[in-house]
Every structure is written in structure tokens, then in C-alpha cells.
Design a binder for these strands. Sequence first.
DNA 1: TACTATTGTCTCACTGCGAAACAATAAATC
DNA 2: GATTTATTGTTTCGCAGTGAGACAATAGTA
Lengths: 232, 232
Amino acid sequence: MPNPEPSDFLPHIAYDSVVFGFSGEKLKILLMEYHKTGWFALPGGFVGINDSLDNAVQRGLRERTGLDEVYLEQFYTFGSMERFKPEVMMKIMEPFGYEDKDQWLFKRFISVGYYALINYEEVEPKPDKLSDSIGWYEVDHLPELILDHNFIVQKALNHLRTHLDQKLLSVNLLPELFTMKDLQQVYEAILGEELNRANFQRKILSLDILERHEKLFSGGSHKAPFLYSFKK
Amino acid sequence: MPNPEPSDFLPHIAYDSVVFGFSGEKLKILLMEYHKTGWFALPGGFVGINDSLDNAVQRGLRERTGLDEVYLEQFYTFGSMERFKPEVMMKIMEPFGYEDKDQWLFKRFISVGYYALINYEEVEPKPDKLSDSIGWYEVDHLPELILDHNFIVQKALNHLRTHLDQKLLSVNLLPELFTMKDLQQVYEAILGEELNRANFQRKILSLDILERHEKLFSGGSHKAPFLYSFKK
DNA sequence: TACTATTGTCTCACTGCGAAACAATAAATC
DNA sequence: GATTTATTGTTTCGCAGTGAGACAATAGTA
């Protein structure tokens, strides 16, 4: 197995990414699973010696999701001593065997946290070399993650919630065309609370960021809603 | 000169701190000056191999300001390639001479940005080993700083402004007792705009975070204002 | 044809905020 | 000691935004 060469990466520095997707009702994130151990972890990686931090994360994301231009935001850097647990990484590496040159993987790491927002439907996640599966998990029902990864997700969610209004985050979580109800469900999933339908509609429309299309979505036994897209 | 030993610190990782103080009218920050070069820089440092990131910053701040429990907040991590300019660090080190073991200082660094809020009057800043002076500079009139340090200050200011209301940041910028006008001046200095006096008073009082003391401040030729302190 | 579920819009009361005005008062001036 | 000046504490008015509820419109179902 082609383990990364230590000389290719900055030592002691890693990133972890919280990849958010929205599947119609629930907010979900991508998790890697190491079957040999039964452990779950955030998709992460290292910073190449000639890569900017942002590029390193972007590249890791592309490899796992195939997406090229995703909404990416750095939210916090984790540097406590509690997150230094070499035995965890050793256990994960064990099935592959490790050599002297892999020792750098078991050193202390400071990790920069990023989150991404992607369109759930456009993605066929691919596991990386160390993990044998990758999948979507509801943020409300996450399994226990290695190290401080549960904490990292909480921090990411917090950041996302408090910046929801400033940026048009939902652009990245929905398909091109959507109904007002779809958009409301995204907001509700992120905020974790229900919103008043009439007031939500009024507020969003007043922002003047949506284009209304005359093609109506139909299928339900009731009045057909308008379809919208974001203005460019 | 006792340069830091490379084995004591995590390589490639640094921090830079933006230390805000308020001097009655203006918002200022601490800058180090390297007289031999005429360059200004943010007070920064490295992370000890047994130090958490937070502790490393706290320690560096204690050494330079003497303050022990300051308000500290991490706001962004800088990892672009543009900030890798070994000649800058070499020039700064030059007057002290450097040996083989100092080579790690000229490598690429990823820097974690923190800002601190401190009471201007309680502090007698001390320069560190490399810089021969340290002083306060108005954020509105900063000199040119090395590397991306001007950009780092901008990011810090932004973060401070957008989080002004959520946290009681001004607690740390004022003495124990203060007038409503003092508090308003802190807000105005941070936001960089003037606020309506009556509305500011109404809003702050409605937050129910201040204790009003009957001891009046006097000295001006006009009605004496109340003194306030923050509720604990 | 009547019914049901959902949608688009409107109304009403309440809150919060900008702007301006008014009354109170500590020190300075006459 | 009376008057003036500068600043403070509080109130008022108008406007915009928001929460909660109501009403009419309509695509499919019974």
C-alpha cells in the first residue's frame, strides 16, 4: 500500500472536513468508517509542502466527492493535548502494516477544521486508502467518532448556524430548481427548529434573491407550488 | 543569545496575536518593532511540544503584557504560500547571528490567529528577545507590517465587529467602573462609526447586564453621569 | 361535484430602532 | 447668589420588521 511519504507533507499539521449535505429532510455529514476497528472519523488529510492550506482541503474533498468547486469555509483550529492519542492512528494503520517512515503519522497533530456544503444528489462518495467505506449520517444521530471529532462537528454546526443569514449557504445544498418548502426545510434542518411558513416566505422574498419560474411543480393533491432558483 | 531550541517546538506551526486595547478614544493594538530593519510585526510565537495551542498563546501574552487572565479568541488560521518568505525571518535574526539549529525558523509556517482584549491601563508591554521595542498603535493608522500581518489584523477586526453583540467583549477593555459614555466610545471605536447616544443607552440598559452605582463621577461642568459596572 | 391538503397572500398586534425633544444638574460665569 | 453652559437621563413619535393567525386559491382525490 502506498502510504504517504513523510517528506511530502508538513509534519504535525492536519485538516478535518465536515461535509454537509441535505437529503430532502435531514442534514447529514460524510463519515469514513474503518471496518477493522469499527471506528468512524471525519474525512481529513495532510498539507503538502507546496500546497496552501485551502488547496490541500479542496484537493482532499475532490478525491472523496468528485466535486470541484464546493463551498468551503474554515471555522476553527484544534490544538489541545487531549487530541494526541497515537494509539488510535496506530490501530487504524495496523491492518496495512507500517514502517519506520510512517512514524510521523503517530506524532501530535494540530488540525484545522473546515466545513463544506454540497448538493447531496451530485455526489458519489469514495473512500480513501485507509478507510474501507464512506457514507452519509444524520447530524442528529451521529455515531461516536474518534478523538475530538464529535466536538469538531459541533463547532462546525455552530458556525454554520450563526452565519446562515449572512451568506447564502443554502445555494449549495439545493438543486438548481426548488420550492419554497424545500428551502424552508434546509433552514429548519440547519437551525434545528421549526419556522413559520408565511413569515419565512415573506422574509426570503423580501431579500430579493430568488427568481420565480412559471413552471410549477406538481404531483401532490393540492395547489402546485412555484419553482425557484437563486439569482446569479 | 538563547535562541529557542528546535526540538522544543512543533515545526511549521506558529501563532500571531492581535492585542486590542482601548485608550479613552481610540482602539489600538500592540506591535513589535525590529529597529535594525525598521519592520513592524504582530507579537507571535511557537507552540511547545507539550503545550496546547491555547496555552502557548496565553503564555506568550503573559510574557509580553504581564497579564494572566485575558480574554482570548482564536479567529482564523493562515496557511497560504504567499506568507512563506524566509528572507524576512533571516533579516530579523541577522543581528543575533544564527546557527544550523536555527534553520527551522526559516521554514514555511502556518499561523493561527488569536486576538486578545485587555485593559489598556493595566499593562506595561515588554519586548521579547528578538524585538527591541513594543508599543501601541491605532488600528486606523497602522504602519506597514511584515508578511501578511496587516491582513491578519483586518481579519481580527472583522471577527471582533461581527461578534461584538454576542459576547460582552467590552468587559475586558474597560476598568471596573465606567460611565455610559465610556462604554459607548468602546463600541464606536470597535465598530468605526458613531452611535446615537439615547438609543445606545436604551439598548444597553435593556440588556440588563449593567449594575448602576450611586457614586457619581464628577469633574465636568455639567450633570454628573452614573457609574456602572458589569453584573457578575 | 364536493373534499382535502397545501400554497400564496393578507391582516393585526407587538417589538425594536432611528431621530428628535425635554427635563435635570454640576460646574463655570456674571 | 442668579444665570449660563455642557452634558446626562428619559420620553416620545414614526417606521420597519416579525410572530401568529386567517383567508382565498387550486391540484389532485373521493
